[in-house]
Write a protein that binds this DNA or RNA. Structure first.
Lengths: 122, 122
DNA sequence: GTCTCATATTCCCTTTTGGGAATATGTTTC
DNA sequence: GAAACATATTCCCAAAAGGGAATATGAGAC
């Protein structure tokens, strides 16, 4: 993963927002739609873009695709993600995303998954 | 200066290299040409681009235009520039730029300007 | 198998981007 | 003034990017 490639991934607001939200934990596409308030194509395409370049991972879980930040990101990616989290703290757009995310999952650190599946799982 | 705008500026290699080199101190266009080994138009245009967005400052000094990082960058810019410096450390392209820069100005911290002007100044 | 839900992909269009050749501008030197 | 130098700008082009409508795929429920 080239450093320059990382920066190329970061030059789009939607992708920045996706990565920022992922800082809070794994999430599925439908939740991204709700959090970013953007159409499905847009979300899905940008996630594919990020995935192809190794900035996020995607794993199918039943009907849902769970996206997450890589478990062992390169130092460059790590640094840039940390920087993003830091810089986004005071930004209205990013803050709003986090607010919407909280509303989706009001439960405490209950753990795994993105909480997509209602009680019908397992 | 919007955070997203900063990221938009960082999605081009040439601009990344310019900003990275500027981490070493102010520089004029002709030296950028030598350091990056890129045509004048390219350098000049990208510097104009960065300048318009407040990522660099430019000041005329005689025949030369001296570009520099802003004296008081926003926290977001500061963080991202620091991150870039950090990440570039192990990158061949960025290292090569610094090597060429050193060759241009072998003198110690002699101080102001970019050293463009030969002994004919003052 | 059929229906439905969640997501991915294709196709097409518009806008933006980066690049270079040529030219213009501003500055010093003579 | 003219000439030389450093840099900026204009004009034009090819490639890429982002977006959406429609469609395809994959999975679970029945």
């Amino acid at each position: 993963m080239e450093l320059v490639e990382i920066y190329e991934c970061l030059c789009d607001v939607t992708r920045l927002r996706l990565l920022h939200v992922l800082g809070q934990g794994p999430l599925c596409v439908c939740h991204f739609q709700a959090v970013l308030d953007e159409p499905q194509v847009k979300i899905s395409k940008h996630l594919a873009y990020l995935r192809e370049r190794g900035l996020v991972t995607g794993e199918r879980e039943g009907k849902w695709m769970i996206y997450a930040l890589p478990a062992k990101p390169s130092p460059e990616l790590r640094a840039n993600l940390a920087c993003l989290q830091d810089c986004a703290r005071e930004n209205p757009v990013f803050r709003r995303d986090l607010a919407r995310l909280k509303k989706l999952a009001p439960q405490p650190p209950s753990g795994a998954g993105c909480g997509c599946a209602p009680a019908t799982r397992g």
